[in-house]
């Protein structure tokens, strides 16, 4: 797969500077005993990714019927399979399956801290395939593998990473699989 044509829309500056609030002096107001607080770092930088490295993402998530219906209705997704139980039963389901767009958004969401939390443009998704249908009360976990690394032409403070991300249900059945490409901050920029 060729991701060389993908360039971010982001400006040539870093997505955001996590220390900006210190530079502009907000911390002057901070109580004295909090000024030396240990910064709890989250997320990884471009240098943390090596091809083949696997991330078993944290937490997992049990999905409720109401969440999928909320997602379907707020995104105006009008396939009754996702919000009309009787209709879903007539199609052979035991109950309404979870909206696949919610499954995609959730599995990507679970991967964010490990892969892309510090900021950087989300460039694209390729080769997304849905597997087993997800139903309410299923518990979803996610795993990603680093697939490609390259420099960003437009933004030397970042690199571009492609991961293969997979989502699984509580029986280990794969419910989704996709390639995600993101701009990722380099350590020297984020430090």
């Amino acid at each position: 797969m060729d991701f060389n044509h993908i360039e971010p829309f982001a400006s040539t500056e870093a997505w955001f500077d996590p220390h900006e609030h210190e530079k502009i002096g907000w911390r002057k107001m901070l109580p004295e005993n909090l000024k030396s607080a240990r910064r709890m770092k989250k997320g990884n930088r471009f240098e943390d990714f090596q091809i083949g490295r696997i991330f078993e993402h944290h937490w997992g998530r049990t999905v409720r019927a109401s969440e999928s219906i909320l997602f379907s209705t707020l995104t105006l997704n009008f396939n009754p399979t996702y919000f009309n139980k009787c209709y879903a039963e007539a199609l052979g389901h035991q109950e309404c399956p979870v909206n696949p767009c919610f499954v995609f958004t959730l599995v990507q969401g679970l991967s964010v801290e490990d892969l892309s939390e510090p900021g950087g443009a989300f460039l694209g998704i390729d080769d997304l395939e849905y597997g087993a249908s997800v139903y309410p009360e299923d518990t979803i976990t996610a795993r990603s593998t680093v697939k490609a690394l390259r420099a960003s032409n437009s933004n030397p403070g970042t690199g571009i990473v492609t991961w293969h991300t997979e989502g699984f249900n509580q029986r280990g059945e794969r419910v989704i699989s996709f390639m995600r490409t993101n701009q990722v901050l380099r350590a020297e920029v984020a430090a």
């Binding site: 997505w15 955001f16 989250k42 997320g43 937490w59 998530r61 969440e67 997602f71 919610f102 958004t105 959730l106 990507q108 969401g109 679970l110 964010v112 801290e113 892309s116 939390e117 900021g119």
Partner: peptide, 9 residues
């Protein structure tokens, strides 16, 4: 937030 996306952006 519902999908656990922790990116502050």
């Amino acid at each position: 937030n519902l999908t656990m996306n922790t990116a502050a952006a």
